[in-house]
């Protein structure tokens, strides 16, 4: 688990995972196909990662490799890494993937994550330093959360540098006020 209070980590753990119950469970309303408030052994239920993970570690469920890491995605990443829309597959592609590695049988998942990041990272960097503000949304729409963070890290430090080079006001109203900012930017 990432830091207990980390918002991104919490949201990443909400990603859905298909789980097959190896043990039955009573008194819970999580299987939409069940008639009673219970889950039968062998039922396939879509669970959020945080639940699937814990149950898997206690051998109560087995999990399937989520579709965002399927063969089609892998082939696309191999063919043209920068153009794959990973965000639509999972905004938390890498974080979620890292969390899945220990509980799925697929040994190649780690390599998929690593090579995808390595081949896309360059593109993120180049675009961050060259893309105009108009072009940015289009690029960003394909990137995962972590890639967007990287993009923004690169872009905002360059922007801060440029702002410093131009000079200007050193003191600004608190942005939490969300007003009286007309004279800036």
């Amino acid at each position: 688990m990432g830091s207990y209070y980390d918002v991104d980590d919490i949201i990443a753990e909400e990603e859905p995972v298909s789980a097959v119950f190896q043990k039955p469970a009573n008194g819970v309303g999580i299987d939409p196909s069940a008639e009673k408030n219970c889950v039968d052994q062998g039922s396939k239920v879509e669970l959020p990662f945080w639940l699937a993970n814990e149950l898997c570690q206690r051998n109560a469920v087995s999990v399937l490799v989520p579709p965002c890491f399927d063969e089609k995605t892998r082939l696309e990443i191999q063919a043209d890494p920068a153009c794959v829309d990973l965000r639509s597959r999972s905004p938390y592609f890498y974080e979620f993937g890292c969390k899945m590695v220990p509980i799925v049988a697929d040994r190649t998942l780690g390599f998929l994550l690593f090579s995808a990041f390595r081949s896309r990272y360059k593109d993120v960097l180049t675009k961050a330093h060259t893309a105009s503000h108009v072009a940015a949304p289009k690029i960003l729409s394909r990137l995962t959360k972590e890639e967007v963070n990287l993009y923004e890290a690169a872009q905002s430090s360059v922007a801060a540098f440029k702002k410093w080079r131009i000079g200007g006001r050193r003191f600004h109203p608190a942005s939490v006020l969300g007003r009286k900012r007309r004279s800036e930017e």
């Binding site: 209070y5 043990k23 469970a25 009573n26 008194g27 819970v28 999580i30 639940l51 149950l55």
Partner: peptide, 29 residues
């Protein structure tokens, strides 16, 4: 004991800690 009642209880327990984490993160952040 590891029967269906136990696993049901486990799911409730995990959901409770998950909810706690979200509530705490909301306040903390």
């Amino acid at each position: 004991t590891r029967n269906a009642d136990f696993y049901g209880a486990l799911i409730h327990h995990l959901s409770l800690t998950r909810n706690k984490r979200c509530l705490m993160a909301y306040m903390y952040n």
